[in-house]
Amino acid sequence: MFGFLKRMSAPIVLGALILLALASIVSDRSGLRRSDLPWWQGVLLEVTVPVQKAVAIPAGAVGRFWRSYLDLVDLKADNDDLRATLLELEEANLQLREALVSSGHLEQIVEMRDGFEVPMLPAAVVGLDVSPFFHSVLVDRGSEHGILAGNPVITHAGVVGVVTRTSDHAAKTMLVLDRQSAVDGVVQRSRTRGIVYGRGTGEPEFAFEARRGDVEVGDLLLTSGLGGVYPKGLKLGEVTALSDPGGGLIQVATVTPAVDFGRLEQVFIMMRRGPGMSLLYETGEFIEPPRSQAENRDEDETAALAGNEGGL
């Protein structure tokens, strides 16, 4: 009996581990997800953050030094361009403020902004995904800081992604570049709506209805706020190319992300979780953000699309 078990140990172990792996995959894809990782995975994440921080500090210094050198090469030309742009923007800003004050809307806008104010927590990116197939980052804030899976992550430049799992002092964030990412977006100029899909490359794509869509190269894409994950008006990127729709219903545009993911060091985690994420994750308190009348009106029309944002 003992000899038989010893002989069969490898097939038994193989079978058991394959079943365990498949069960993990299936449970990860179905049903409600837990925000916090199981204890042993949490411990691994907790240990990883200080180790990666220790390595990331000198590694980051080397990277910054190299980038600084590269930046210096074009400094003069960039400076001139920026000065010219600043003058134009100052002029435009002045005109807009004048228009707002004269129409009496400025005060209302300030009040509305206060209503939408979302507390944010700064966090440092300590590591990137260990697999080139996926796009995620590890940040040094976790559930002890109030982070929940489903919290949007942004920088001053735009949308970074969404927190997918947390431990006490660390959180995994899926980037908008990831193949599993989908964000409800809107073209700033024409208000054409669509979905920004991650493709696993540096450039996501924007899929929109070909017949009704009005999208041009150079258009700025913003979050529509209708997907239930990201608030409205965050920068997603710029349209850099348009595909030929042919006879198809859906046209696709290539997007250059607003965030430079190659230089991602500091991010802000929004301490607000959208309704879509609260349906997906079982733990944590759901705080409904204030909604505008327009958002409420559009909600029914876009119920099908809304379910897509966050992850596929």
């Binding site: 792996a21 993990s24 995959i25 990782l37 994440l45 990883t48 590591g127 995904d129 995620s136």
Partner: peptide
Amino acid sequence: VLSGSLMGLHAL
């Protein structure tokens, strides 16, 4: 755990 993959994918 350290990747954005489905849990169990790399293990398998």
